[in-house]
């Protein structure tokens, strides 16, 4: 029964390891000028009095919001935008508490005040605007195609009869069914699983927003290429609970400064391995032509 005892020891060690994983690091001191206090009773004033801003970001989207397993810190474009906002409010880019915001919970998070802002690759649309307020557009993504390097697929028009993978319950599924009705759409539990299936030769293409696909392409540039351009427009905005115009205004001012000063391109270069485009225009309706 030595095996059995050894295994028990193994399980205990595994448990200890789990318990020992360091919690996310706290704020580290970095100074700058804090903005003057906002009017009493506003959300912005509440944030200022608290001394830190609570931000919902993705933990699983490379380049935008990803929990790095080695450092146990979140990093990415969205996180850097959050840091700019914290720097503007407190003069300290680290005065942030991060919460994981997945697509299903991020709007309730804002509505019940769990977080102050949601910066989590969230597309602005009319339906969501009924539930929460949005800042100006800070990033423009679009649905695209990831295919094997040697693939003959060049655009969405080449997908007839091809096997195309995407995630269950995503807007990408609905878009691809509409735009390539003859494609054989297969649904996976996540994009990484779909790419693994393509790696096993089971799919001809994987489709979703290009910023997600770029991550896979950048990791294995010899295997994959992005084709077909952006065949939808997904303007990302920062979500804020309804009824806080002063906070929206503050966020928009930070975004405007980012875009104007060239800092936006810097953040892009830091996180995303393609040549930075011009920053997107502010108004999402203008972008999608509504």
């Amino acid at each position: 029964m030595k095996v059995w005892r050894l295994l028990m020891v193994g399980i205990v060690i595994a448990g200890l390891l789990a318990a020992c994983t360091a919690p996310p690091a706290g704020t580290s001191g970095s100074t700058g000028k804090a903005m003057p206090k906002a009017a009493d009773g506003t959300l912005l004033r509440k944030i200022q009095d608290r001394g830190k801003i609570v931000v919902g970001v993705k933990y699983d989207v490379p380049m935008f919001g990803l929990l790095n397993p080695t450092s146990n810190k979140v990093e990415g474009f969205d996180v850097d935008v959050a840091k700019e906002i914290a720097a503007a409010i407190f003069g300290n880019p680290d005065a942030i508490e991060y919460k994981e915001a997945v697509s299903k919970n991020r709007i309730p998070f804002l509505q019940d005040g769990t977080v102050d802002l949601v910066i989590s690759t969230m597309t602005v649309n009319a339906e969501r605007e009924g539930q929460i307020d949005f800042s100006n557009v800070y990033y423009l993504a679009g649905q695209s195609l990831l295919v094997p390097k040697a693939s003959a697929i060049a655009s969405i028009n080449d997908l007839a009869g091809k096997k195309v993978g995407t995630a269950k319950g995503s807007t990408s599924e609905q878009n691809i069914r509409k735009m390539a009705p003859k494609a054989d759409v297969q649904l996976f539990d996540g994009y990484a699983e779909a790419v693994a299936a393509m790696d096993a030769g089971r799919l001809d293409a994987v489709t979703t927003d290009d910023n997600i696909l770029i991550g896979f392409q950048a990791k294995e540039p010899n295997k994959w290429k992005l084709v077909g351009g952006q065949f939808t427009k997904e303007p990302y905005g920062i979500g804020i609970a309804k009824g806080h115009p002063e906070t929206v205004e503050m966020v928009n001012k930070v975004l405007a400064d980012l875009k104007k000063s060239g800092k936006w391109k810097e953040l892009y270069k830091k996180n995303i391995p393609t040549t930075p485009p011009e920053p997107p225009i502010d108004n999402w309706r203008q972008i999608v032509g509504q």
């Binding site: 193994g10 595994a14 448990g15 390891l17 789990a18």
Partner: peptide, 13 residues
């Protein structure tokens, strides 16, 4: 192995 051990801990827990 550490990565997997954390998973085993979650499974057992």
């Amino acid at each position: 192995w550490r990565f997997l051990a954390l998973g085993l801990a979650m499974t057992v827990a």
